[in-house]
Amino acid sequence: MTRKPLIVAAAGGSALLLAGAYVFQALGYLPCAMCLWQRWPHWAAIVIGIAALALPGRAMPLLGGVAAAVTSGIGVYHTGVERAWWPGPASCTGGGGGALSGDLLSMDGPRLILCDQVSWEFLTLSMASWNALFSAILVLIWIAAARAPAASPPLAGAAR
């Protein structure tokens, strides 16, 4: 397979994951701060994918792989926070000070979404876990794109 279809698949995968996140948000599953952090590398991967289609070389697909690896890593970290494997940021978890040290019973201001609470899961995996898994697959696709030839080699004996 050549590079361009792999780039489209990888950047398209990030677009689909973002679309899924926004659909869940529209259905009322509001994102926490760490959920929002996971979206930024997907946006970067989409932009990188567009650039990679226009620019020759392997640098852009490798950069796309880095973006996918970053969001996958954030997803793993978020999963660990949700499962209490390690502490999360005090600003968005129920255990620390930070932004949560005020009056939690106040009805003023926006609704606070905690990063250590799972709002939706499927097959025992949270949205953060699914993002980590699918983004890791996208890393592999980006790497395949970087390794793939830019175009199909000409057929032997083809007319010139």
Rank of each mutant, 00 (worst) to 15 (best):
L140F: 12
I48N: 00
R160D: 10
G73M: 10
L16H: 02
L123A: 15
A11N: 05
T124E: 10
Q117Y: 08
R3C: 08
P149D: 13
Y77G: 05
P153T: 09
F122P: 02
G20P: 02
A21K: 06
A151R: 15
G73D: 04
K4I: 09
V23T: 10
W130R: 13
D108K: 15
G88K: 04
G13H: 01
Q117I: 15
D103N: 14
I74Y: 00
L16Y: 05
E82M: 14
S129M: 14
P41L: 09
A54C: 12
G80Y: 03
L63F: 07
M127G: 13
L62F: 08
A150I: 03
I7K: 01
Y77I: 09
S152L: 15
V76L: 12
T124W: 12
G49T: 07
L17Q: 11
R160T: 11
Q38Y: 00
V70D: 01
T71Y: 05
H42S: 13
T79A: 14
L36P: 00
I48S: 00
A45K: 03
P41R: 07
Y29A: 11
A45V: 07
F134D: 02
A151N: 06
D108G: 10
P153I: 07
G88D: 03
R3Y: 03
A99D: 12
E121M: 13
S135W: 01
I7H: 00
S14G: 14
I74K: 01
R160A: 12
A99F: 15
L112R: 15
V23S: 06
A45P: 03
G157S: 05
C92G: 05
L18G: 06
L53S: 09
C115G: 03
L112A: 13
A33M: 15
L112Y: 04
A156W: 03
A19W: 04
A10V: 07
I141D: 00
L30F: 10
C115D: 11
A68V: 08
W130M: 13
T79P: 00
R147C: 10
V8S: 00
P153M: 09
V139E: 02
W142E: 04
P5N: 08
D116A: 11
F24T: 09
M127P: 03
T93I: 08
G28K: 06
D103Y: 04
D116T: 06
L63E: 02
P5E: 04
P153D: 06
L114M: 14
A128D: 04
Q38K: 14
L104Y: 01
G109L: 09
M60Q: 05
W120L: 13
